[in-house]
Amino acid sequence: MARASQCAHPGPVAEPKYQIRALHTESTVTVYQAYAPEIGLPAAREGRYPAVWQRDRMTWIKPSFLWMMYRCGWGTKEGQETVLAAEISREGFEWALEHACLSHYEHGLHADRATWKRQLKRAPARVQWDPERDLHLQPLAHRSLQLGLTGEAARLYADEWTVSITDITSLAHTIHAHVQGGDLDAARQLLPRERPYPVNEGDLAHLYQ
């Protein structure tokens, strides 16, 4: 008789707590933002952010579609009615990660709080890891990357890294309608096919909590 340990089927493999998951190609990665129509609509129409998009302010990009839905309420929150999918160059995305600082002080990762503050002040990008969301926008155990861009990184994102911008508001509303109607399979079929982004763990060591 075979031993139980040989016959047992392994359970589902848990998602790593910190892992970048995104819709990506060989040259681009898709990130999400949501804006008021006066910014979002011309951005999608022209394929680039308009002049009124403030390049001197911090902007947060999110590779997770469902985290963006949590943030913008499926495109219903005031000032976030237009949901955008921006394809940006992988070179730009990876440059931002390389030059990013974790958005909060973490004992054991940073030498001390003062050192972290200096790094944060100098960094053109910062990273937060927030709970990923399910179709009901409830938190999951693993984390989703948020990448904040400021100064040089924000300007590069808007004017050099961005390859295309697509208005996906109708997609967000359609998926939300399926969720509200209880048809989670239909909703899941429409989700962007996000998969682990190929980056060396050592390259992200400065961004793990």
Results as ranks from 00 to 15, higher is better:
S27E: 15
P198S: 12
V13G: 11
P124H: 00
I61K: 01
A114Q: 08
L149W: 10
G151R: 04
E201D: 15
Q33S: 12
A158W: 02
A125H: 00
E26C: 06
R188K: 03
E15I: 03
V179W: 10
H110N: 06
V199D: 08
A86M: 10
E91S: 14
I88F: 02
L120H: 10
H142G: 09
V13N: 13
R48K: 12
R188D: 13
V199T: 15
D134A: 09
H206L: 09
G75L: 12
R21A: 07
Y49T: 00
V199M: 12
M58Q: 07
A114C: 05
A86I: 07
V29F: 00
A186P: 02
K77G: 04
E15M: 11
G40Q: 14
E91T: 15
Q6A: 13
L149D: 05
H99K: 07
H178V: 02
G151D: 03
A172W: 05
A2F: 10
L156C: 03
E94V: 02
Q209H: 10
L184F: 15
L120F: 13
R3S: 15
A43R: 00
H142C: 13
H104L: 05
R71W: 04
D167W: 00
T169Y: 10
E91N: 14
L84D: 09
L207E: 05
E38L: 11
P139A: 14
E26G: 12
Q119G: 02
Q54D: 12
H99R: 07
L120M: 07
I20L: 12
G40I: 08
E132W: 11
H24E: 01
D203H: 12
G75K: 11
D134Q: 09
A34Y: 09
H9K: 15
G79M: 11
I88R: 01
E91D: 15
P192W: 09
S164I: 05
Q54A: 11
E132T: 14
Q146Y: 05
G151P: 00
Y105L: 00
L23H: 04
L204C: 13
V179C: 11
F65R: 03
T174R: 15
A177C: 01
A154T: 03
Q138Y: 05
R118P: 04
P192A: 06
A153R: 01
V199Y: 07
K17E: 13
A187Q: 08
L66R: 06
R143Q: 13
Y49I: 01
P196E: 05
R188L: 00
W129G: 10
K121E: 06
G108C: 09
A86N: 07
A186W: 05
H24C: 03
H24R: 04
Q180F: 02
P63G: 04
V52T: 14
A141T: 07
E201Y: 11
L41C: 01
G148V: 04
P63H: 03
A44R: 01
L109W: 01
T28Q: 00
M69C: 15
E132C: 14
E78M: 12
H206Q: 13
V31Q: 02
R188W: 07
S64I: 02
Q6W: 03
R118T: 04
A4Y: 08
S144I: 02
W95A: 01
G202T: 15
Q138I: 01
A154G: 04
E132M: 13
Q80V: 14
E78R: 15
